[in-house]
């Protein structure tokens, strides 16, 4: 059956829960492209014969063409959905993506995300007449100024707004301004301790 490989790609993404990125499936992608090439070549020969008078070939040409379109559509959907997932990871983890995510990306995807990061950065820099505002911060409405956080790993020294430097050591607990911690919490360095 035609198009089965392409559907496989879509299913693979569908099975993954939101926000997870499976490894780039170059293998199946290539198989789909090969199938498309074969379909295209068959169509070329059949078109020539149909022009020579064999009108009974037209339905099969049409069928192959539909399969080609479907394959194209499935592939672009697969690729685009992956981009959206990678984009979501950028917003979640900040500008440096974790190694296991990068491991699952293909070279072109790495290029895409670095270009995306650049666009986003220059957008944020140009906000408000050149002052700039990091809109990847303040994701949740603020409830209180300071929050209790616990260090999950050694992070080294950390300076807060008024100039005080504190040492973020594993298992130490601190009372810090929320807007300074948000990123670290998302990176998994700090944990918000709910009392």
């Amino acid at each position: 059956m035609f198009c089965e490989k392409a559907i496989e790609l879509i299913r693979e993404l569908h099975r993954m829960s939101d926000g997870q990125l499976p490894a780039f499936n170059e293998d199946v992608l290539r198989q789909v492209l090969q199938e498309m090439e074969a379909l295209y070549e068959q169509n070329q020969t059949d078109v020539n014969e149909a022009k020579a008078g064999r009108a009974e070939l037209i339905p099969s040409i049409k069928l192959r063409h539909c399969c080609l379109l479907r394959n194209q559509r499935c592939l672009t959907a697969y690729l685009y959905d992956r981009l959206l997932r990678i984009r979501a990871l950028r917003w979640e983890y900040g500008s440096v993506l974790p190694a296991n995510v990068r491991f699952h990306m293909c070279a072109e995807e790495v290029q895409w995300i670095s270009q995306y990061k650049k666009s986003l950065a220059s957008f944020m820099r140009s906000l408000g007449g050149g002052e700039g505002l990091d809109i990847t911060q303040d994701m949740k409405p603020p409830k209180s100024l300071y929050i209790e956080v616990r260090c999950l790993k050694d992070h080294g020294e950390f300076e807060i707004d008024d100039g005080t430097v504190i040492l973020l050591k594993k298992n130490s607990q601190h009372f810090l301004p929320r807007w300074k911690c948000e990123q670290l919490i998302r990176q998994g360095v700090l944990e918000h301790v709910m009392s």
């Binding site: 492209l33 194209q72 672009t76 981009l83 072109e108 995807e109």
Partner: peptide, 19 residues
């Protein structure tokens, strides 16, 4: 532009000429 370039590079340019 970025997304278009990406799609072209990974899949579209490897597809048959009419697609």
């Amino acid at each position: 532009a970025n997304t278009e370039t990406y799609l072209k590079a990974v899949a579209l340019k490897r597809m048959p000429p009419n697609l």
